[in-house]
Structures are given as C-alpha cells and as structure tokens.
C-alpha cells in the first residue's frame, strides 16, 4: 500500500487513541462522574457543581499537562538522538533532566526561605540553565569518548549525583511546602494548573514549530556531518540550535512535571518502527503524539492503580519504557552502540 496512505491512517489512529485516553482520564478518579454530564461541563465551563470543579480544575489541567509535556519530552529525545546520530539518547538517561531538576530545586528552596514568590517563567529559566549545564558536561565527555555507551553511563551517573544533591536540599529545607516539592522531584503531572498551562503550551508549540522547520536539515544530517556540510549546511549552527530547542523542551517538562523517565528515549524509536520511516517530517509529529498518548496512559495508571495513593509518573513510564530501550539495544548488538 501507498506509504502516504499508511501514514495518514496511523496518524488518525493515534489521534483517536489520544481522544479515547482523554475521555477515560476524565472519567477515572475517586469521584464517579457520569458520561452524560461531561459535554455540559466541558462546553459551558460549568464550575457550579463539585463534578464541574473536579473535571475543569483537577482532571483536565492534568490531562493537558500529560498531553503537551509528554509530547515535548518525546520530541526533545528525538532531537538529542539526531544530535548524537544515535537512537540510544534521551534527556533523562543523559542526566539532562536531573540537571534541570537540581537547579529548579535550589531555586525553589531558596525562594521558600527568602519568602519569595516563584513564577513559572523563572522555573523554566532555572530548568533551562540546569539542563544546559548538564548538557555541557555530557558534550565535554562526548568529545573525549567516542562510545555512546560510556556517554550514557556518564549521563546516568550525573543523574544520580544531581538527584542525590536535590534530595539533600529538599531534606534540609524545612518547610510545609516541601511535601509538594518532594512529589515534584519524583515526577508528577498533578502539580500544574491552568496558569502554568499558559506558559508551557506556547513554549511547546514553539518547540514543535522549530523542530518542523529544522526537519529538512535533520534528514540531511542523518547522513553524517561531512555529507551535510557538503550540502552547504552550517553544521555548528545547526547543532547548537538542536541542543537549544531540545533543552528548552526538556527543561519545560522538568520545570512543571519534574523528571519523567524513558519517554524521550523510547517514543521516537516506537514512532520509527510504527511508521517504518526515518523522515523527520513524519517522525517529529509521530513522536510527539506517541509521547502524549504514552504519558496519558501512564498517568492514568499512576493515579488509579493504587488510588487514593499515587505512584510517581517515572515509576510507570519506566515499567513500559525500559523494556523498549533494552530491546533497542539488543537489536543493535552488532553495531557500536
């Protein structure tokens, strides 16, 4: 069958799956809500009933967050993979998310002590600086070692160090708000509301646009640096741009949802295999949608499996994501990972 047709069918199925997950997410929770009330609540924005408030102020913001930040994470991972010309790369596994987490935690605790109100943009900025520092470290290591597996081990180590320091800071910061901070530092989609959505939606949208405009060069770059250069591409500028867009996306996720594991590394791989394509113009939207669907699904499990207590989102994403990454590595056993 025609490739274009197959891709269209796959995109439509993915969007339908996301819609279905959204509906299930709206309906699932400790308070049962009848399907019939939903259209009314959603369309009229009716907050007069308890159900209305639960849907509009608790469940829906959480769904929107998983949708946008899950997609952003997958896209961020795909851009890192393009940068390293290696499919085993992602913001979490390379320690970039943890770097962002550490800087955000420092800023949060400092703000709490100083009695200073943090706004979302400051969080994103802190996370961005944190991820750039971690990325800088990873890049310095990558200049010295040629092997991707050593690079990943270094990334995981950086992740451990940053997480340990974050925990130390959180443990010593004595405040009632620390409970929230603790949840966030493990990863959760429950922390952000509509006000935060006004910040992250435009950032993520800009990230997708930037990625799409880079898609043609990303495709050429897949054939190697030298070849891309011989097409007249400025390699240095392109690589800097890749890292910046990828870092902005993963920093935004970390600022609002904390570190979320395995989405960035696994989803682009699933997208490639599902669409049987390497064309960035296809894989960018496909990774994004898969990241959204995956995070909606994992968040559903995280909050409903042991309700009323919640699992951290990374616990669930790891259960599904880690086997995908392991199978990728086995699939590449003959190559230099």
């Amino acid at each position: 069958m025609d490739r274009k047709k197959t891709h269209l069918i796959l995109f439509i199925s993915l969007i339908l799956a996301i819609l279905l997950l959204v509906v299930i997410n709206i309906l699932t929770g400790s308070v049962g809500i009848s399907v019939r009330d939903i259209p009314d609540i959603l369309l009229k924005g009716d907050r007069s009933s308890a159900e209305g408030r639960i849907i509009l102020d608790i469940r829906l913001p959480r769904i929107i967050e998983a949708l946008f930040l899950g997609g952003a994470l997958a896209l961020s991972g795909y851009m890192l993979q393009t940068f390293f010309l290696n499919p085993i790369a992602g913001p979490y596994i390379l320690g970039i998310s943890s770097g962002a987490k550490l800087l955000v935690a420092i800023l949060m605790v400092w703000a709490l002590k100083a009695g200073f109100a943090m706004n979302s943009l400051m969080l994103v900025a802190a996370a961005f600086i944190g991820s750039l520092i971690a990325t800088g470290f990873v890049l310095t290591v990558s200049l010295r070692v040629r092997s991707m597996s050593i690079l990943i081990v270094c990334g995981v180590m950086v992740g451990y160090i940053c997480s340990a320091v974050t925990e130390l800071i959180v443990a010593f910061a004595d405040d009632s708000n620390i409970v929230n901070l603790h949840n966030w530092s493990l990863g959760t989609f429950s922390a952000a509301g509509w006000n935060e959505a006004r910040i992250y939606i435009p950032i993520v949208a800009a990230g997708i646009l930037a990625a799409l405009f880079m898609s043609k060069t990303m495709e050429a770059y897949r054939f190697g640096e030298e070849y891309a250069e011989s097409l007249g591409i400025s390699i240095y500028g392109f690589r800097v741009l890749l890292i910046i867009v990828s870092s902005v996306l993963s920093a935004t996720v970390t600022a609002f949802a904390g570190p979320v594991s395995f989405v960035g590394i696994a989803m682009p791989h699933v997208a490639g295999n599902l669409f049987r394509s390497e064309k960035p113009l296809i894989i960018i939207p496909a990774s994004f949608l898969l990241g959204s669907a995956f995070c909606l699904f994992c968040d559903l499990l995280a909050r409903s499996l042991f309700a009323p207590s919640e699992l951290s989102i990374s616990t669930v994403t790891a259960v599904f994501g880690a086997p995908i990454v392991i199978s990728m590595m086995i699939g590449r056993r003959n190559e230099n990972v």
């Binding site: 405009f213 050429a220 054939f223 070849y227 049987r276 390497e278």
Partner: peptide
C-alpha cells in the same frame, strides 16, 4: 563514509541530494 539507514528507500536517499533546491520542508 558509509550511510546507515533503517527505513529509507533508495529514492529517499537520492532525494536528500536535492537539498539545495527543495523548499523549507523538503
């Protein structure tokens, strides 16, 4: 340098050579 591809047809590979002529989305 060898080109490692996974899901690229020969047409896809040759198409990339038209880089400087194609539009912003290739």
């Amino acid at each position: 340098d060898r080109v490692k591809t996974k899901f690229m047809s020969c047409h896809d590979v040759v198409r990339v050579g038209r880089y400087r002529y194609t539009g912003i989305f290739g």
